[in-house]
């Protein structure tokens, strides 16, 4: 039987006994790293598995996300061995996708607003932001609405609001976005398909 990485790590538990060797001046950092890895594996074993798809290049590699059932946080993401295209493998970016989760301290977690001529962000609520954005859209749209073009043809469009993005959102979100911008009358619409 092929020795899998998990099996190998599980079988290396005897190494932990070597911790006592630290007093002899032996570098034990690899041993500690193994122990940490094992703790993680125990956690992964009891975690909830969710299937996903990689968010980068469009090969569409399969992912297995492990979520800690107590905290609700994702604790590990690895390749899905059942996936017929990726067969469990991931590239450098895909293998690092864990760092797009809440584990990344740089994630945006609050609604932020920058006022005119201000040099800083302010934290706001969703209700405030949605209301204020809708007001801006309506005001700009109403001011710029073009019912007819110079030839007198009916066009019902606006050219003073533009939209960009995105190929980084799911299909259902793309479809809603298209419906939104068309219903507003936008024509300056584009996204990463060109860039």
């Amino acid at each position: 039987m092929a020795l899998t990485r998990r099996r190998f790590l599980a079988g290396s538990g005897a190494l932990i006994g070597g911790l006592a060797l630290s007093s002899l001046g032996i570098d034990l950092s690899p041993v500690i790293a193994y122990a940490e890895e094992m703790k993680k594996i125990d956690k992964v074993k009891s975690a909830k598995e969710t299937l996903s798809v990689c968010c980068y290049c469009s090969v569409g590699c399969g992912l297995i996300c492990s979520t800690d059932t107590k905290t609700g946080n994702i604790i590990n993401i690895e390749g899905d061995p059942e996936h017929p295209v990726s067969e469990g493998t991931l590239c450098a970016k895909g293998a690092g996708i864990f760092q797009t989760t809440s584990a990344n301290e740089h994630r945006l977690t609050k609604v932020l607003y920058r006022a005119p001529k201000s040099d800083k962000w302010q934290v706001k609520t969703w209700d405030w932001a949605i209301t204020e954005i809708a007001k801006r859209i309506k005001k700009t749209r109403d001011a710029g609405f073009i019912a007819k073009n110079s030839k007198g043809e009916v066009v019902n469009r606006i050219e003073n609001i533009a939209h960009m993005g995105s190929s980084n959102i799911d299909n259902e979100e793309c479809w809603l976005t298209t419906a939104m911008v068309r219903s507003l009358g936008l024509v300056f619409i584009d996204h990463q398909a060109r860039v």
């Binding site: 969710t50 299937l51 996903s52 798809v53 990689c54 968010c55 469009s58 090969v59 569409g60 399969g62 992912l63 996300c65 979520t67 609700g72 946080n73 994702i74 993401i77 295209v85 996708i97 797009t100 989760t101 809440s102 994630r107 945006l108 977690t109 609050k110 609604v111 932020l112 607003y113 920058r114 962000w121 932001a129 204020e132 954005i133 980084n168 799911d170 299909n171 259902e172 979100e173």
Partner: peptide, 29 residues
């Protein structure tokens, strides 16, 4: 207005790969 969004692995929905395979994914957290 900078609005914080859920990341890909935090969302249920479909994504279409280069080979036109529309793959469904689930919300992991």
């Amino acid at each position: 207005f900078l609005l914080p969004a859920a990341a890909s692995v935090e969302k249920q929905g479909s994504q279409t790969n280069s080979g036109r395979w529309v793959q469904w994914k689930y919300e992991a957290a």
